[in-house]
Design a protein around this nucleic acid. Structure first.
Length: 575
RNA sequence: GUGCCCGUAGCUCAAUCGGACAGAGCACCAGCCUUCUAAGCUGGGGGUUGUGGGUUCGAUUCCCGCCGGGCACGCCA
């Protein structure tokens, strides 16, 4: 049993003696901010004041008297309004070192998730161009969160929803085809609202190389009865797309497939290099091809939540907390994106996930109510879906905001960012903020090799420890047997406390879906270590003291490794 | 206009499912390398937590009003 559970048990026994009718679930132990308040504080007396109609300090005194003795507790005292503060014996704190050294990479893992199947869906970018720095944040956040949930004992599945159906893909196909026509000398004015990026030209070039003039069509036919781009740019695009489909026929499907494959491969390798991998790449298009969308809408229809208006089918989402009803099938028979999402979430639950986490860009927040509503209508508990909104990352270069727009081709890609600041800095910076906060990503700061850069600060602590152990030259495996009783300085107690907290940090991070807690914890642990390092020499002649200190720093190194691994950041041994 | 998110030190951000005197980093000032990595450390000044109420033994945290910022309000995806 871990220390905190042991202490909680003590209070449970005391509570049983003085107020047997009160539930033990009331008991909460917290880490006081202030050192003089001990190692753990319990507010049970304050919580009992009202139901017992007694003063908190009275109750605290009774609890204290009923508290069983423990070999781990030095003393317990009443403070403030009625807190009971526990002070641990040094031995109880020092024990964490052999515990960490024995459990190594498993230290911090827990059974909070109890093996439940949980799915984390993230990035899910349109495969219509390179990932940009906004996607990078979703990727870093999602990957870290998935790792944290994994450590917390969930059975985690990482999924990427591929938006391979719909108009944006058609625009990309059209864009590529138009660039292709340019290359083979059959130029048609390139619409300003088509995809402008160089990657489109690159794909066109590949098509020329592999298919020569196979996809050339008569200029006049391409522009046949297409709306003028001046009067209505969007209708202009749609007209061109319609003509492209008609003129290219099966060739259109080939280009579509080629373009999609290219983009997905690019996306996949980009993310892999970033340390972000997925178990499943789920195709939106497959939901429509397989009839799953149709089936999902039919299920809703059977339950009476679908009606027809203006020729379209509507889902009564307003009955489930949405502002208004939403179209699921258009007048022309096509399903909307929303229909796909209903089918997709239904599929998630049918695959047996108890919990589902959707990580979306903040601009999708209006979408939450309708998706949860649809699942509720289908008979599922909407609480099983958690939507984590990730605010946009705004890039700053030379103190100025970098403008971004995918369509205009004016954006900084995730690749460029990674090349510029490195994977480690990018991963760490992205999760250094709560996900629902705007992120100002300062490029100059992230790539500066200075102490302003938190990722180096944490990695540096790790490298320093490696360096010490190398200098020592002994066998680190023997340190788990070391006598840790000499560790009694204030620095050492601060570090022991920090190390003891790690499992709770991981649990809290999992419970609140907040990987940033790991990043903040690591900064704090590194700070405590650097401070200790400067104040204390480890490789001292006295064998007992030396072993104790080396055992401590080795335990610190282990926790730094465990935490950095959750964030997908490397642990260099030299810097 | 309606809905959601956010307002904390000069700047960028924390604050343990309501806890005790609100904490870090940067910037600024003053110090520390003959030692295991100075990408480091030590010390200092910095706050009416946007604002006005309410609930509570206790509020940065929960509720309401106002002010300020962001996002969303399509048979787009």
């Amino acid at each position: 049993m871990d220390l905190k559970s042991h202490l909680t048990q003590l209070f449970a026994e005391a509570l049983g003696k003085i107020a047997p009718s009160q539930p033990a679930s009331l008991i909460q132990l917290e880490r006081p901010k202030q050192e003089s308040h001990g190692d753990y504080a319990c507010n049970l007396a304050l919580l009992l004041a009202k139901p017992l109609h007694r003063s908190p300090r009275d109750i605290a005194a009774a609890l204290l008297a009923a508290l069983p003795a423990s070999p781990n507790v030095e003393k317990a005292e009443i403070a403030g309004a009625g807190f009971i503060n526990l002070f641990l014996k040094p031995f109880a704190k020092q024990q964490v070192i052999p515990h960490i050294l024995n459990t190594s990479e498993a230290y911090g893992s827990s059974r909070l998730g109890a093996g439940k199947k949980i799915q984390v869906e993230f990035v899910s970018a349109n495969p219509t161009g390179p990932l940009h720095v906004g996607h990078g944040r979703g990727a870093a956040f999602g990957a870290s969160l998935a790792n944290v949930l994994d450590a917390a004992g969930y059975q985690v599945s990482r999924e990427f929803y591929v938006n391979d159906a719909g108009r944006q893909m058609d625009i990309l196909v059209l864009s590529t085809w138009l660039r292709y026509l340019e290359l083979v000398g059959e130029s048609i004015a390139f619409p300003s609202n088509a995809y402008q990026g160089d990657y489109v030209r690159a794909m066109a070039k590949r098509i020329v190389e592999t298919h020569s003039k196979q996809y050339v069509r008569e200029q006049k036919a391409v522009l046949q009865s297409v709306t003028d781009s001046q009067s209505d740019p969007e209708a202009h695009l749609d007209g061109l797309i319609a003509n492209a489909k008609k003129l290219l026929g099966k060739d259109y499907a080939d280009i579509h497939r080629f373009v999609l494959t290219e983009q997905l491969n690019d996306c996949r390798s980009d993310l892999e290099e970033f340390g972000v991998t997925f178990d499943t790449w789920f195709s939106e298009k497959s939901l429509f091809d397989s009839g799953q969308a149709e089936r999902a809408i039919a299920l809703l229809e059977n339950k009476g939540y679908i009606y027809v208006k203006d020729g379209a089918k509507w889902f009564s989402s307003s009955k489930f907390g949405d502002e208004k009803d939403r179209v699921v099938q258009r007048e022309n028979g096509e399903f909307t994106y929303f229909a796909g999402d209903i089918a997709y979430h239904l599929d998630k639950f049918e695959r047996g996930f108890q919990r589902v986490i959707d990580i979306w860009g903040a601009d999708h927040h209006g979408y939450i109510a309708r998706v949860k509503g649809a699942l509720q209508a289908l008979g599922f508990d909407p609480e099983r879906i958690t939507v984590a909104l990730v605010q946009f990352a705004v890039l700053y270069r030379n103190g100025k905001k970098v403008p971004m727009s995918t369509r205009s081709g004016e954006f900084v890609t995730l690749r460029e960012l990674r090349r510029e600041v490195g994977n480690d800095a990018a991963r760490f910076f992205y999760v250094l903020r709560k996900s629902d906060q705007h992120l100002d990503f300062d490029l100059d700061l992230a790539k500066s090799q200075s102490n302003e850069n938190p990722v180096y600060y944490v990695q540096y602590a790790h490298a320093r420890i490696c360096s010490v152990l190398q200098e020592w030259g002994g066998d680190a495996a023997t340190l788990s047997q070391a006598d840790t009783s000499p560790l009694t300085s204030s620095h050492e107690f601060a570090l022991l406390r920090c190390l003891m907290d790690y499992p709770e940090i991981v649990e809290g991070s999992a419970r609140e879906f907040s990987p940033h807690l790991i990043a903040f914890y690591l900064k704090e642990l590194a700070a405590e270590f650097h401070s200790y390092y400067n104040a204390t020499r480890f490789l001292v002649p006295e064998a007992q003291i030396r072993s104790a200190r080396l055992a401590l720093v080795t335990a610190i190194r282990q926790v730094l490794r465990n935490g950095l691994r959750l964030l997908g950041v490397s642990c260099p041994e030299k810097m």
